[in-house]
Amino acid sequence: MKPPEARAASRVYDGVWGVLASCFLVPRTPPTLPHREGEVPVAFHPGAGYLRYTLFGFWLAGAAFVLIALVAAGALSIAEPAAGIIALVTLGPLLVLVFSLIYIGIYIRYDATWYVMNERSLRIRTGLWIIHEMTFTFENVQNVAVSQGPLQRFFGIADVVVDTAGGGSAMNQQQGLPVMSLHQGCLSGLDNAQEVRDLILSRLGRSRSAGLGDEGGREPAHGRTWSPSHVNALREIRDAIREQPDA
């Protein structure tokens, strides 16, 4: 049984989710991915370390901001005591409100991030205001990379970056897509990044094509098998040699 504060917190959290789901149409369920019969697609969030990692960033940035705000308020109070007090009284609560919104937002964003994989493809959903879902087939994936910064290592998480063919660097703000190449999918903050990378690599290793639109994988490999016409030709050679009268 959870302590009462935790239950109250989770009720508040569910309430926030309810509002988001009904008014802002943010889905809480993972995105669907068509799959075959008997196959179960796996859907997962970033690792638990990712939440701690983002919260750490939040506290760090928040502390820096509060420090700067306090210095500014102090300077203002010295120069103009009345204005300083008014600023403290009005901006203080506002700051608290904004911080708590961001704090809840971090949890919500974490819960709204989904990675879904089946045998052949990968779907990533990110974002709250702009919900962005990308779909890649492993057939098209060119390379898979794992990247980890020092802080990420401390929290035991890493990013898995999946690239498909094609260039293009920055994004197009109008399309509302994240700041990365459109030919790239990032599974950020996984606590089992190596496993996920190996899984993706093994699935991509099954495909025989280069992932550039060639359909080589669908045809029998030439040169390694004999077609019936080959065999016929050989048969004819043999018969010709047999029939030839001995010189």
Partner: peptide, 16 residues
Amino acid sequence: RRIQDIHLSRNLLQRW
């Protein structure tokens, strides 16, 4: 057959 990846995005206005 040449499709590499599909992106589906909706902003708040589009969702509404």
